[in-house]
Design a protein around this nucleic acid. Structure first.
Lengths: 336, 336
DNA sequence: CTGTTAGCGCCTTCAG
DNA sequence: CTGAAGGCGCTAACAG
């Protein structure tokens, strides 16, 4: 008494053809006369036939699912990277299964294990730091894998992103050039966000290489949200002393920090300089343009998806693609 | 020469038991001695056994996937609703397949059709307005369905959300009480976002019922992002004349609008009142608290997921759950 | 162009 | 507690 729903068997019976003909008609492959195909599709529709992807995937031994792992949804950056990728994938007939890890490597590993049970056509991970098992499993399963947002010379499979350390360095250099001497950084706790850590390293290096080396003070706790975290970071720094320039993990934190500066009576950039990251939408409406670095989020998604599609189809592509960033000299830092 | 990968058959051979015993051991169901179970799990791990969800879903005729349809990722509101739901679902062992519709009903319909091929355990849609086919297909497939963020007395299955019309009315009433007389609204083009449209209706009704009825001017084009759209809306309104209060689709648009007001030399609230919606994180760091309405996004997700889980398990729940909003009397509108 | 055969990997059912 | 038989819906491979 199983078989309640309608499958290609029911359609085949109704159309008085074999299941294979129905299968071919529905998939749109060659080998069915146009007349029959039309008739079959008509009947399938009438019968409310719904294909069963599980059966199909089982038979063809893979699926049209792309598994994606993101740190969080609560960040425009990932939303934009995602948007960039999805357009390309949709067009190619893939659906995405997404999970967020909240920056936990263990969580990422569990998700990848889970993903593999679905025999995805490809997997996309954020960043290049993963538990060792992750890359190993993906490789041995032979699944095309894209690491996005950060780059390495030795990706699991392919990667597309920006060089965060270099980006930090560029921002740091710029600040050094402007003559800043007591820098501070407000971000997440070290170890939580590897890309942010890399940028901080770049900033540090810039100041180390400056005319005279300046230590950089670091603040940052895991906060509810970016705006609040930026504000809290400034509060924390000011308890001790006033830095002359503060680098923030991103523009939203920078904005929160600027608001906090206002509360403390500090003028920007006269009393304190502010540097953000990403050039997020928010910055376009502010009366004072923030000094920041523009990151090609959407483009990254597009390029990543395109390369990954190529990999799925067995075409060789660049293993590592590094996209450029653009320094934006705003007015939240002193003039040159 | 098929059967390259290791399945329960290979594990069974290695453990010298039947496939059924392996199946039971792995699923953790009763009927296997603890000794054997441990041994089987050990061997499975050694062999790098990866379960095949497609086969499992085919056999049991449903999956542990929950299909989700969101208008967009580029909006904190949906990110938070999602976060609220995911915690609950993860815990229960479900994975989510997500797609965004960019506010297109046709796109939503295609996605639902696609989802159904995966035999999902449940489906979650945003809002209560769908093409007729959507509800019909979901119902006839007997899939538990949650409509979230908006409510109706007649959901496809169950719904959890807020009453947007009432929310708009409440904000409108408040403005009427404060004596505002030439209101304007900045949002998306009518028809694009049904919830926003409902709120606008509520605002209108409040002004219609006021001491003397005041027409409300409406501005809004589909813009790249919320901040810019808010600013553009103000620019558009001011070309004609200055309203005394402007309602925005959400706080981010309101902020963009406030920045634009600054550009035009308008003081808030002396020259123009500003009302937002949602009480987004951004508002917590602004020096001037925005008049807005706090919406229970996270809670909505949690309650929705919980009710949906109940439905999946066949437990009866409320069909419609309406959550309350909280009016926040900020300082972007004149005092009472 | 159309049909037949034999699985895909796992689980339900029923028999020991 | 364990195993054998058969099926889930679909498709590759091979006939005609």
């Amino acid at each position: 008494m199983r078989r309640s729903s309608v499958g290609i068997r029911e359609v085949a019976e109704a159309a008085k053809v074999s299941m294979m003909t129905v299968s071919r008609a529905i998939r749109g492959v060659e080998g069915v006369s146009e007349k029959k195909r039309a008739e079959i599709l008509r009947i399938a529709k009438k019968l409310n036939y719904v294909p069963n992807s599980n059966a199909r995937s089982l038979a063809v031994e893979n699926s049209n699912l792309v598994g994606i792992s993101l740190p969080t949804f609560a960040n425009d950056v990932f939303a934009e990277i995602l948007a960039g990728m999805r357009g390309t994938f949709e067009g190619a007939g893939y659906a995405s299964v997404i999970d967020t890890t909240e920056y936990s490597p263990e969580s990422e590993q569990r998700w990848v294990e889970r993903l593999l049970t679905w025999r995805p056509a490809a997997v996309i991970l954020t960043g290049i730091d993963h538990l060792p098992d992750v890359g190993q499993k993906l490789r041995s399963a032979g699944i095309p894998t894209l690491e996005i947002w950060d780059v390495t010379a030795d990706p699991i499979d392919i990667c597309v992103g920006i060089d965060h350390e270099a980006a930090g360095y560029e921002l740091g250099r710029y600040a050094v050039t402007l003559g800043y001497q007591s820098p501070a950084y407000v971000g997440a706790p070290i170890g939580r966000d590897r890309r942010a850590d890399a940028r901080l390293r770049g900033i540090k290096r810039a100041f180390d290489e400056g005319p005279c080396s300046h230590p950089i003070r670091v603040a940052g706790r895991p906060e509810r949200h970016a705006f609040g975290a930026g504000a809290a970071g400034i509060d924390e720094l000011l308890q001790e002393s006033r830095p002359d320039v503060v680098f923030f993990l991103n523009d939203h934190m920078a904005f929160g920090g600027m608001m906090a500066c206002g509360r403390h009576g500090l003028r920007i950039p006269q009393d304190i300089g502010v540097v953000g990251f990403n050039a997020l939408d928010l910055t376009t409406v502010l009366p004072v343009p923030i000094t920041t670095a523009k990151t090609p989020r959407r483009q990254m998604g597009v390029v990543g998806a395109r390369n990954l599609l190529a990999r799925i189809h067995g075409v060789a592509t660049e293993r590592t693609t590094t996209l450029p960033i653009t320094l934006i000299a705003g007015e939240t830092t002193r003039g040159e």
